[in-house]
Every structure is written in structure tokens, then in C-alpha cells.
Amino acid sequence: MESKFTEAAHQKLSEDGHESECDKIAHLLDLMIDGEASTEEQSYFNTHIEECVPCFESHQKQKLLKGLVSGHLKRVIVPESLALSIKARIQETV
């Protein structure tokens, strides 16, 4: 049975000293999770991770990491007095 996943093939590409496809994907990871990838980069990325388990997993992990910060880091509460003292100091300013 033909393997559904071809990660081994992708990783071999780096032998000639060029960036392997998986390396290129690794460089796009942040762009993808931050919504900064171009349409071309997105489709290149998505096509690759459909058939490459390690890259698919890296993508999941990177999304999880971003989600931990955006979804779980508590916001501190601004002291009530701060806005008032800013307004007061501005009014004093000529």
C-alpha cells in the first residue's frame, strides 16, 4: 500500500544543500498563524501540510502556543485613578 504521507521524501530534499520543502514550511509557520502569509504562501503551505504529518503537527503546536497567550493571559485592570490623573495633568498643561 502506498503511504499516504510523504514526509520522508520532503525531508530528503535538503541533501543538495537547498532548503527542503519542510524548512520552507517552517519559515512560513509564523506568517500563517499571524495571518501575514500571502495567498500564494497560504496555498503552498496548506497543500504541503495536507500530506506532511510533521509539518501539520508543527502548525497545530504553533497555533496552540499563540492561543495560549491570546486566550489565557490575564489582562490587568487599569486603576480607576489613572484616567483621572491623566486628564488632570493634561488640563494643567498649557
Binding site: L82, I86, T93
Partner: peptide, 24 residues
């Protein structure tokens, strides 16, 4: 802005001062 100041200074008083200074 206050949250950013707090994450930079890790101190509420410092964050307060930094934000005031920024607005001025």
C-alpha cells in the same frame, strides 16, 4: 496601553508612571 506597560515593567506603579508619561 496600561497592560503593555505592565508587561514591560512587571510592576503596577511603574506601569502607572509609564502610561502617564506616555500620555503627557
Amino acid at each position: 496601553l496600561y497592560n503593555f506597560a505592565y508587561r514591560l515593567t512587571l510592576d503596577e506603579d511603574d506601569a502607572n508612571d509609564l502610561v502617564q508619561e506616555t500620555y503627557l
